[in-house]
Amino acid sequence: MRIHGAGGPVVELVDVVRRYAGGNGAPALAGVTVAFEAGTFSAVMGPSGSGKSTLLQCAAGLDRPDGGRVRLAGQELGTLREPKLTQARRRRVGFVFQSYNLMDSLSVWQNVLLPQRLAGTRPDRAWAREVLHRVGLAGRENDRPGQLSGGQRQRVALARALAGRPEVIFADEPTGALDLGAGREVLALLREAVDELRTAVVMVTHDPAAAAWADRVVFLADGRVVSELADPTVDTVAARMTAVTAA
């Protein structure tokens, strides 16, 4: 089913540079090369202003690098323009953000099917139902986001991301607005998506406990990859984080 080779990276950034308007300060990304493989859960960490959100946005095609290349599922993003970029994204990528980004005027069920409707493809209702069941929201299909708790909303966002069978899910502080229990549930679901559906997950977080759910942690500082950690634990992440921040 996956078109690109099973072993190849789903997301690949090579020498990615991103400057911001004004351009005097240090670039947000100063030549980042990193790859994310299918079926892996990666966390991106770093102090504030290290460029971790910019990295995620460039990787997802939500932002354009000023230099370097980004390949998403075998496709060169640099050559794509809107609306092709959106079309590529909605076929291959799912998003989970701190602020949920659900449509308040649509029901849970409508939100979950929205990307497929927008793509003009026939919604896979059976899979959508299955996904809602997996995130524990079976029976809440007709509720509106406004009637749900934060954790429930984030699970709807996750269900929406999964319903499109993406190759990669980008998550930006997905637990940032949630309490400990709700955050843990969301992380467990992301883990499950990696293990059972072989989806790649790239998650930006500042929380060592969240990063510990990943297979690998990439540390950024001043727009560069400064360190990596495989099979992280809360303690190793926290220690490495302290080292990175101090440097």
């Binding site: 809107e82 994204r89 909605r90 980004n101 308040d104 929205l114 990307p115 927008l118 499109g164």
Partner: peptide, 15 residues
């Protein structure tokens, strides 16, 4: 914000 959310959900600007 609503428009931005729609774009993130996969809507093209034209949509």
């Amino acid at each position: 914000r609503e428009f931005a959310d729609l774009r993130l959900a996969g809507a093209t600007a034209r949509q």
